[in-house]
Design a protein around this nucleic acid. Sequence first.
DNA 1: GTGAAAGCGCTAACAG
DNA 2: CTGTTAGCGCTTTCAC
Lengths: 340, 340
Amino acid sequence: MSTLSEVARRAGVTSATVSNVLRNRGRVGEQTRQRVLEAVEALNYRPHLAARALAEGRAPTIALMVSSIANPFYPEFALAAERAARTSGHFVIICNTNEDPHAGRTYLDQLAGSLSEGVLVMNANLDFDDLRKAEARGAPVVLCMWERPDDPPGLPCVAVNFRLAGRLAAQHLIDLGHTRIGAIVGSKLSGIHASRYEGFVDAMREAGIKVPAKNVRHASDTIQGGYEAARELLERDPKITAVFATNDLPALGTMHAAADLGRDVPNDLSVVGITDIQLAQQSRPPLTTVAVPTVEAAELAVSLLRELIERPGRASHQKTPRVCVTSEPQLVVRGSTRKR
Amino acid sequence: MSTLSEVARRAGVTSATVSNVLRNRGRVGEQTRQRVLEAVEALNYRPHLAARALAEGRAPTIALMVSSIANPFYPEFALAAERAARTSGHFVIICNTNEDPHAGRTYLDQLAGSLSEGVLVMNANLDFDDLRKAEARGAPVVLCMWERPDDPPGLPCVAVNFRLAGRLAAQHLIDLGHTRIGAIVGSKLSGIHASRYEGFVDAMREAGIKVPAKNVRHASDTIQGGYEAARELLERDPKITAVFATNDLPALGTMHAAADLGRDVPNDLSVVGITDIQLAQQSRPPLTTVAVPTVEAAELAVSLLRELIERPGRASHQKTPRVCVTSEPQLVVRGSTRKR
DNA sequence: GTGAAAGCGCTAACAG
DNA sequence: CTGTTAGCGCTTTCAC
């Protein structure tokens, strides 16, 4: 690692001047500029980002907290977030909390406000108090996919109308003539997917269709989880003609379960999910789902975070932290649903 | 952000002492220790990692260069790498190069040697000169999944015997009695997957089976890419009874293509891939594949990197950079292959 | 146009 | 046991 002053010495100037040419600040004579550039090249010099961060009082990274990057949804979001972050010169540090609040706290303690200038939070099961502490230390926090636009969390967030997503999925099934519909909720009922299920219930109620409790199952947000839940569901009540899942992965698992039970999708069973992850287009048949604007959410989240970094006044200790709402979820009809 | 000296002032000591209690260095009196801890708590103080890094001359992150985190293989590796990195106190910064050497260079210029103490390189299509420059600046580089243990790259690396993987896949097909076998190579033939294909060719040759050029297709490392290649392959020569793909994603795509062409897997067509990504267990039928020790590779890569960070003497400007070899790939027989 | 100097928050000798 | 001091590499006024 060569340093600024080494470059300066070699160019016969002072480090302030080198700094100036490197960041195009202050007027610098054309020839000194050239000499400096040559020295930089000769020494293979690159600015030391940690030193710069310290001097500037900023940091070149943001943290992205997810439960596990191995869940196929997060990489799509992470990629979009990283792209957006790069436009403001930020790198993104991925923090896998594994749903463990303690792990989350550890990340926040170490990163927030020092190495990272801000924190993006995906469903990572974090303690809100920890988040507020991080914020108080100077690192704005943005919740990336808040599920209820109508019920703001008291922290800045990007909200997606997941309740509508649930409703759209249900309505699609209803329109297709299904009445015996099973539901797979990809987390605890009280949990993060509750609003999706509520939207589903709304639509069913309006259509005058009952959903007995025995036709509702909880599952982990995985293909395997969906598979198991669907098997139970379909074995307990073989007359079910459609399954609604609050996420694509369990929906995909449902299709596998159906196949194993000898039921053809979509002829014997319709399946609909929520999110539209890449895999949804690549199943056989391709999955009908309610697409959620992932990339848009990532971009909004990053730009909101950036805004909060610039004007710290707007952070969440205000009465009403900012809420951005993405465009609305949209039904994508593919091959996994069919008229009854 | 409160600082060390604020804490010190509040505790009535000097910042050196605070530093000592926080890192359990040097003897500190029990009561001062208490007072310091209280002050830390009261002020919600956390050490500033960038400042610490600067003072220590180290950095708390490593960079992980991948082509795109959205490719389902990388998250599995990334997760394992992150876990391993955490044990030495490093965060990982994910760099999506999108296969663009220029993007890769930009990352290396900014991160290597300043914000990041080392860099992990997955198939990201980087310029080796750029990597060596980064190394020269003081950030060791480790190639994470070098495909040819027998042909070291001149940089420290973790090598996986992918040639053997190709051979195992081919041998499995041969053992099953297949002779008309198509091959889908998930990149340019000259490229990164060449050795997998060579292993395949080795086994075929030994078995006395010819693989005409028209039965070999290149594809991008995606389900879609495999789908298209497989369709071509199977339409051009319907007598093919088995397909070998150099990666799981194209293998999965091959299964879709087969289905669309009315060919049942595994009865009409056997399909084998390489890697054993999570999705491989979750296709229908589950994919037979040659499992590669991803987690082990990640852990080896991180520990090799760590070693190079500790003793910079061993970096690649030596005659023979270190090469770690993982345990060997292993055939995992699942449902996508069957006797002819 | 360019240089001198202070300081970002922390660590690491070395004194006391 | 605790304080003093001198940087780490860079940015940033403010002089010249």
